[in-house]
Design a protein around this nucleic acid. Sequence first.
DNA 1: GCCAACGTTGGC
DNA 2: GCCAACGTTGGC
Length: 137
Amino acid sequence: MAQWLFKSEPDVFGWDDLVAKGDTGEEWDGVRNYQARNFMRDMAVGDRGFFYHSRSGLEIVGIVEVTAEAHPDSTTEDDRWECVDVKAIKPLPQPVTLETIKADEALSEMALVRSARLSVQPVTDAEWAHICKLGGL
DNA sequence: GCCAACGTTGGC
DNA sequence: GCCAACGTTGGC
């Protein structure tokens, strides 16, 4: 079981939008980056991920679960692009801000900090546990 | 809204 | 295969 982090601009598709989809979940479509796509190919049903609000928000707001492994992205005819499906599990009682993550020595190696533009990224066991704790879970 | 960082594209 | 130009992302 692996952990991941999904980024989205709340103005475009935020946490509340995913919650509104319920248990059906939603395609994590629109990814047009090979690295991010490759991480999605590595995902398995049942994997957990953080949901991060980029641009405006700048914080991890909730936990999601992968409900379908990588399949062709229905928003493009281009068969290079794939996506997984995710559903909302629960919000973090206390959202963890980018500021907090940057200031935390234990999280300094996170892709969120080191390669800011990667929209889907892996999270280590240690990082996962640490952020859950900071988030009040 | 700006701009730095980064990925992609295309001419050579 | 190199690299300049261009487009996009995301923190500020």
